[in-house]
């Protein structure tokens, strides 16, 4: 009887209430997309990534002395002149002076590390020590046709430049360092012929879990947990034959092959 009474009160209130409550609060508060850059806060959904970006000061996270990189530097990657041209350049959806619909990606894409790290220039002091302000020179070509615009006009202020191109130790401006030594950069001297990890990198490229060689890059250059199953030889099998006639003989080592493989597991960060 009491339950019936309670239900009646709830029904009466619902019927009489002028306002309805949306299930998803805030769904009608639209972001303004007309400003430069990405106006949608990636951190809203990717709070865990934002937290990770604060854990260490390193490449991409404040090593330049000008704060961590913005999400769009990597995930809406800009046109880069000095890079391995096999990497595709994407058109993302954007609204600035014009509305550009996305083509290969809308808001963001995952990015191959080698997109930015496959050039052939590195570590030089900029001719003009353009540490204080990049913009007077690297501006929109329509305003200053004598200078190459930064990333084809993608960025509009020096702060963006500094977060990637500053060197906190020297005060210089530097090119993004190529990840040489795997024969994947545009440098002719990058042969990678002695690289121990080249098979890891090549397998990562073939594997489609992540973009390009990212599995290999991240395994070493981040604190990402990595579990490795090694399968290693513990023995060499050697075939030694004595060749002989009545008057002449010699010993010959005909074959050396790896054998007796054993498997073991390494987990990065567990020891």
């Amino acid at each position: 009887m009491r339950l019936l009474f309670l239900l009646l009160i709830v029904c009466a209130l619902s019927f009489a209430m002028a306002q309805t409550a949306s299930i998803f609060a805030g769904q009608h508060t639209w972001y303004n997309l007309s400003a430069n850059g990405s106006d949608v806060p990636c951190e809203k959904c990717h709070a865990d990534v934002a937290e990770e970006m604060e854990v260490l000061t390193g490449p991409h996270t404040g090593e330049t002395g000008f704060g961590k990189m913005k999400c769009e530097y990597c995930h809406r990657f800009p046109p880069i002149w000095r890079r391995n041209q096999t990497f595709e350049n994407y058109t993302y959806a954007s609204v600035n002076a014009d509305v550009i619909p996305g083509k290969e990606a809308h808001a963001a894409s995952t990015v191959p590390c080698m997109y930015c790290h496959s050039g052939d220039k590195y570590g030089v002091r900029h001719a003009n020590h353009a540490y204080s302000d990049c913009w007077p020179c690297h501006q929109d070509p329509s305003e200053n046709p004598n200078h190459r615009p930064a990333h084809e006009g993608r960025y509009k202020n020096s702060e963006d430049c500094r977060r990637c191109h500053a060197n906190a130790h020297t005060g210089d401006v530097y090119y993004i360092p190529p990840a040489g030594g795997f024969n994947l950069t545009t440098s002719a001297s990058d042969t990678g012929k002695n690289a121990s990890h080249i098979s890891f990198v090549m397998s990562a490229i073939e594997n489609d879990t992540m973009e390009d060689a990212n599995e290999a890059c991240l395994a070493c250059h981040t604190k990402m947990r990595v579990e490795i199953l090694f399968n290693v030889t513990t023995e060499a099998e050697i075939t030694v034959n004595n060749s002989y006639t009545q008057s002449h003989s010699y010993w010959n080592v005909d074959e050396i092959t790896p054998s007796n493989y054993t498997a073991y597991r390494e987990v990065k960060g567990e020891q």
Binding site: A179, T191, G192, S196
Partner: peptide, 13 residues
């Protein structure tokens, strides 16, 4: 810190 050298024949090792 002051400079960087890309690998040529090898990257890390």
């Amino acid at each position: 810190g002051a400079s960087a050298t890309p690998g040529r024949e090898a990257h890390a090792a």
